[in-house]
């Protein structure tokens, strides 16, 4: 059981990393991090970005759920 959940978690984690990296970086780095200029983010996100957002949220939920399950499994095993 632990093994199966672990594998799910690994896959979800890797997917998460890849998906986030596929997003276009909006951070702008350090330069506008503290007291930088006014960031002008005009224009909405494209369809690709929006679908990517949805996908990322979906994988994120799976990721989080598998963390919870795995945490509980370890806890149950540790006590027993």
């Amino acid at each position: 059981m632990i093994l199966a959940t672990s594998i799910v978690l690994i896959v979800a984690s890797l997917l998460m990393v890849v998906l986030v990296l596929m997003h276009k970086g909006k951070g702008g780095g350090l330069s506008d991090m503290f007291g930088g200029g006014v960031s002008s983010s005009l224009g909405g996100s494209s369809v690709v970005e929006r679908n990517l957002d949805r996908l990322t949220i979906g994988v994120g939920v799976v990721w989080f759920a598998s963390i919870v399950v795995l945490g509980l499994l370890f806890k149950g095993k540790g006590v027993g």
């Binding site: 990393v17 986030v20 990296l21 909006k26 795995l70």
Partner: peptide, 28 residues
């Protein structure tokens, strides 16, 4: 598994920050 989870966590933080910059107030 722990290491991979933490790495994924860090990228999630990165994403959260970018979301705030994009759709929220201030620099994420």
């Amino acid at each position: 598994v722990m290491v991979i989870t933490m790495v994924a966590g860090t990228t999630v933080i990165m994403w959260l920050g970018e979301l705030v910059t994009d759709r929220g107030v201030g620099n994420g």
